[in-house]
Design a protein around this nucleic acid. Structure first.
Lengths: 340, 340
DNA sequence: CTGTTAGCGCCTTCAT
DNA sequence: ATGAAGGCGCTAACAG
């Protein structure tokens, strides 16, 4: 008969265990003030009934959802997937679930998704970068929902940030190439529109060049989406500049890999004729020929540390509000001293 | 004064719009039986108050959560990340949220996570492969939660499947290499423990060889995790076999990329001395030198189609229960006819 | 240590 | 076309 649709509920467990619903609730929530024998009876009853708590009811009553949201540009880029992997793993250890949304780099879509996450009861939200619609932040702040920026170290008044300084990273790349004696440089940046990270890297790179007395008007800079093809066509354009550069900084390893591929096809020696520096240190950096010199981004760590922030108590959070992680230059084979 | 903690609720909207909560609810849910002017008044009031519905209350009352869960081995492998990307994108179009959990290829952990998802009210669950604990499936079936297998085409009685036939894929790889005249073959498979996909590919490969009269005792088969390093060491072991193969099938592009790298280091020509076939057709397949011949897996499509199944009505679902997608051999440069 | 009571915020009959 | 009332399943006081 009573096959039931959803299954047993708390009160059924209480009946079977011969106690009050309150006691069952206490056992379920690990409240230690319950007699050992009762606790066991309840646990047994719950098991026998295949009882699974109703999270919605629980959330409604307790105003704790144990739900966290993340809005990232895409999962199709290893740099974000890895970050999310770290985030999820750490949250899961504490029985916190992660809802993921992809914004495809669109901050309007991001707003819609943030709204949905708020509606779902997300207690914290992980965002990428520091460029967001003001409505998004206003909503989160109004609802008292904590948020964490990643891939940037610039926190806001209300939010936290765990990441790195993209501007500094760009300068590091420039410094490295300058020190190799390069004076004709170029860059294939990511799309900088609404993307503070791509813009930061580019600006840092150019600023450092300028500080070294290089005329920026002579530095070809193109933008491309993070795809192999855009790396190829980007490199083509950069290399066709009337002052062909001897060193090119790419806003991501994918772009750099595409750039190298273009050089292969065009018969341009890397690093003989042109040095190439990537960004991210993905697995692919070891697959190109020559292997790629690149800047390593601590993707997984960012996810983990963002999780730590989220899981921390309000008082602990203060210490964790702004975490700048180190960027490391990984020198491989795609860079060399300037020719001649 | 009343800064409120969470913010306005439905009844506040009702008061401001001068109508009953029931009417507000109707407007929110797109019930068409509401007068146009009232509808607008309500919408306006909601906007002015920054009202966001409480999903938990809604779910509790309506028993519809619009939440879907996915349990995948890891997001650190593009093949899964891309699938999830497709899944999420499609679900989001219909305002369905996706909770992601990673099982690290551990079916016990997978069970725990499935439990958590059930608790959260997931209405459907996406799983990878067809190897799962019976308790996991029993729980889902008991709770009447639909589930979809991916990366396999073998559906169960109660669940659906969208994917491909791994055994057939393995046979395809074997057939291709045999047709090139290879008679000494080897394989670097993924870890087959609790992994029907890795096992299926291996079995299909070996079965086809055996059918062609090849003595399986002479076919070196090693297993490795999906990492570059395991590809390298795997290839080393395979190539040190007393009957060094002239063709090696790898259970993933990552393994194949590692295998190629090993060959570079060991001075073994690819495909001159040994042909290498990968699996997945990731972006990296175009980055190796030589570029990788591989089998293309429709990762994004699987995600999208799984979403379509989930979003479909029960009656539509019948038609979608079992979807076998095609696997395509992508021939590049890492394979050639058998030497001599 | 355990039970009783009273909602959390919303949707859904049932009236009107 | 709209309103009134009840309760979804659980937990947080408060008693006892």
């Amino acid at each position: 008969m009573d096959t039931e649709d959803g299954g047993a509920k708390l009160i059924d467990v209480a009946r079977l265990a011969n106690c009050s619903p309150a006691t069952v609730s206490r056992v379920l929530n690990g409240n230690p003030t319950v007699n050992e024998t009762v606790r066991e009876r309840v646990a047994r009853a719950a098991r026998d009934l295949g009882y699974v708590p109703n999270g919605s009811a629980r959330a409604l009553r307790s105003t704790r959802t144990r739900l966290v949201g993340a809005i990232i540009p895409t999962l199709d880029h290893a740099i974000y997937a890895t970050m999310v992997d770290g985030l999820q793993a750490r949250l899961a250890e504490k029985n916190v679930s992660l809802i993921i949304n992809t914004s495809t780099y669109d901050i309007d879509l991001e707003y819609e998704q943030a709204r949905l996450l708020v509606e779902r009861g997300a207690e914290s939200i992980v965002l990428v970068g520091s460029t967001h619609r003001s409505e998004t932040l206003a909503m989160l702040e109004q609802k008292r929902i904590g948020y964490v920026y990643t891939y940037t170290s610039r926190a806001t008044e209300a939010g936290a940030a765990v990441g790195f300084d993209n501007e500094k990273a760009g300068r590091t790349a420039a410094r490295y190439l300058l020190d190799l004696g390069h004076t004709r440089l170029g860059m294939i940046a990511g799309i900088t529109q609404d993307n503070d990270r791509a813009a930061g890297r580019r600006d840092g790179f150019l600023n450092e060049l300028e500080r070294s007395g290089i005329d920026l008007a002579s530095v070809p800079v193109v933008e491309g989406a993070y795809r192999l093809d855009d790396g190829k066509t980007g490199m083509k354009r950069v290399m066709e500049d009337r002052r062909r550069p001897t060193a090119v900084f790419c806003g991501s390893d994918i772009l750099a890999a595409g750039a190298i591929k273009y050089c292969h096809g065009a018969g341009i020696a890397v690093p003989g004729e042109v040095s190439i520096v990537g960004f991210d240190n993905l697995e692919i950096a070891e697959l190109t020929s020559p292997e790629l010199t690149t800047l390593e981004v601590p993707a997984r760590d960012m996810g983990r540390i963002a999780a730590d922030y989220i899981l921390a108590s309000p008082s602990q959070r203060l210490h964790l509000r702004q975490r700048e992680l180190a960027i490391r230059l990984v020198v491989r084979e795609s860079t060399a001293v300037a020719p001649r």
